[in-house]
């Protein structure tokens, strides 16, 4: 019988001999040696020309190129996602013509390599020399009634608009729209249909239901693959050479490399630049994810913390 008059002795702590993992130690040693060899190689191999690289990767044309690359990435993604949302909603439409049109768009633009699209969008000036905005088949209709003239209000020079930045943006955006559409569609379909019913039962319109209820919840599913898309887009800006757009990061770094015959340092500079820009975009993604995970994790919000503190203070009186 244990003695009940004193407090029971605390249970004896287990002090077992841990399992040994020799494999882990060996693996760590191998990795350490490999890492040391790598660093040694970087430090001792003359070909890297670190001073030269640092000087040149922050030169003016490179900085401008990095800006073009980043602006192009952000714009192509922003417009591409808007296009993707429209296409996704069309794709989910009950009207077979509307959903079919979106299907054809996605089918077409997902199949075409971006470099081909970029080349093509830069050649639109050769397809028609002027681009006019007006009433469809206006001349045919005028002819039919025996009149002269046309109904056109805007005329643009094809060679003027479809070049450089605009042609590049057009090609990348059209392509991104197709990918974004599929991601957004998957996001929309991941939202519980009960959410739409609840919103409708409250008298919310279709548009409001989509904007206020469905899309914010779909974002949780949309953001991770869209982060991949954004980084892929960052890298694909190097395809702009097909347009050509030359004030872009990769081209500028390569140009310095071939002009000075220092190819390897500038290739390393490319790697570092793309790593830096991709990291920047990942930080953006992190904050977006945090913003749209509201109500799904178990974090206490600022308001809740304030309310709890107020309660705690109240209860101590």
């Amino acid at each position: 019988m244990p003695d009940t008059s004193t407090t029971p002795a605390p249970p004896e702590q287990i002090r077992a001999v841990p399992v040994r993992h020799p494999g882990r130690w060996i693996a760590s040693a191998v990795i350490a040696v490999l890492a040391a060899m790598f660093v040694h190689m970087l430090a001792t191999n003359e070909v890297f020309q670190w001073d030269f690289m640092v000087d040149n990767m922050s030169s003016d044309p490179v900085l401008k190129g990095a800006r073009t690359t980043l602006v192009m990435t952000v714009l192509a993604m922003a417009i591409g996602i808007l296009l993707g949302i429209v296409l996704a909603v069309m794709r989910l439409s009950a009207n077979p013509v509307v959903s079919g049109a979106a299907w054809v768009y996605i089918w077409f633009f997902r199949a075409i390599p971006r470099i081909v699209l970029l080349f093509f969008s830069a050649s639109l000036g050769a397809l028609y020399s002027t681009y006019e905005l007006g009433f469809p088949f206006d001349q045919q209709i005028m002819d039919l009634f025996g009149f002269e003239g046309d109904w056109r209000f805007l005329s643009l020079d094809g060679n003027d608009i479809f070049r450089g930045f605009v042609a590049g943006l057009l090609g990348l955006t059209l392509s991104e729209g197709a990918y974004a559409a599929e991601i957004v569609r998957a996001g929309i379909q991941s939202v519980d249909p009960g959410q739409v019913e609840a919103a409708q039962a409250l008298g919310m319109s279709r548009g409001k239901t989509m904007r206020r209820i469905v899309l914010p919840q779909a974002m949780r599913v949309i953001i991770p693959p869209m982060g991949n898309e954004t980084i892929a887009m960052l890298k694909d800006t190097s395809l702009l050479i097909a347009v050509p757009v030359t004030n872009e990061l990769n081209f500028q770094l390569r140009a310095i490399g071939s002009r000075t015959f220092q190819v390897i340092p500038m290739a390393v500079a490319s790697i570092l630049w793309y790593l830096a820009l991709a990291s920047l975009l990942m930080i953006g993604q992190h904050f977006l994810e945090k913003r749209f995970s509201r109500g799904f994790g178990n974090r206490e919000t600022r308001q809740q913390r304030a309310a709890r503190r107020a309660r705690d203070v109240g209860s101590t009186h």
Partner: peptide
């Protein structure tokens, strides 16, 4: 659609599975 929505404003509905909007307090 807008007229149907207007009719629904006067009818409240409570679902078996609540269907609260999870992204809102």
């Amino acid at each position: 659609d807008s007229e149907v929505a207007a009719q629904r404003r006067d009818i409240g509905m409570v679902f078996q599975r609540f269907n609260l909007f999870p992204h809102m307090t």
